[in-house]
Amino acid sequence: MEKPAKTKKKHGVSYAKWGYIFILPFFITYFIWSFVPQVLTFGYSFFKMYRSGLDQIGPEWNGIQNYVELFTTKLDGIPTVVKYAGNTMIMWIAGAIPQFLIALLLAVWFTSFRLNIKGQGFFKTVIYMPNLIMASAFSMLIWTVFSVTGPVHSLFVNSNLITEEFDFFFNKVSARSIVAGINFLMWFGNTTIVLMAGIMGIDQSLVEAAMIDGASSIKVFFKITLPLLMPILTYAVITSLIGGINMYDVPFILSKGYGTPDNTTMTLIMNVQQKLSTAKNYGSAGALSVLIFFFSAALSLVVFKFFVPHDSLKNMKKGGK
């Protein structure tokens, strides 16, 4: 044992070199394809640079004017950025509430010894599947099915639930609900599996002890399972929130990128895309991106504070390696 340790020390320096060599590609790639674009985005946000017809305007220093314009350009009396942030959050929350409630229920049911659910493999396979489906294809399918010429529309008309003229995608409530519904369908299976993994990590003897002491399963859930699940639930909520803020594919396909009806399904990232594609407005799109970054960072912090009580934070630190 002594000898190899000594040789290792001798060659310690040369081995350390290999550590650097092996992690180098990651960092070079990150620098070129993520860090530089981030810095550029931040930089452009202070410049006036866009295309007006065939003329290129700028780049010319603009200070915080791009940011000011995001809040002074109004749509229906609301600053555009606030409106789009609102749309994004409404659609995320409308999908995330059922997503997390159902995922929690399913995770508890699947892991319950008492219920002893059969066919778990089948159910898990089926509910996770939508997560792997191309979001644009899924949205396109839903659009075809719900459009005025589609089967669901004709089914609703035939059962007198809607009139012939009603278009699911030109009504604020139904258009947003469809976006939220697709997000829910795509993600509740994933969340279920993540939460199940979390519940299975909980020491079952705690649950059994409480059961023997006469606690009801509802009480066990709220007093034992849920508090111990908090760290992983927080992680799941934050990931979902960040995904929600960056929502793009589904509302883009459903509304052809216009956020119809009346910009009520226009999300923040769709707006970035719009600024980039039509006017090549790197300045304004950059400013919006920087805001989205701080918005997601701030919201993650809020979720973190809200969901993790102080004592379980302590537990997490103790438990963490």
């Binding site: 394809w33 674009p37 981030q38 810095v39 550029l40 997601s296 993650s300």
Partner: peptide, 17 residues
């Protein structure tokens, strides 16, 4: 630390580059 940063926020610089 960078695991949570979504790639969408740097798209402006990315496209320009």
């Amino acid at each position: 630390a960078i695991m949570m940063i979504p790639s969408q926020i740097s798209v402006v610089g990315f496209i320009k580059m």
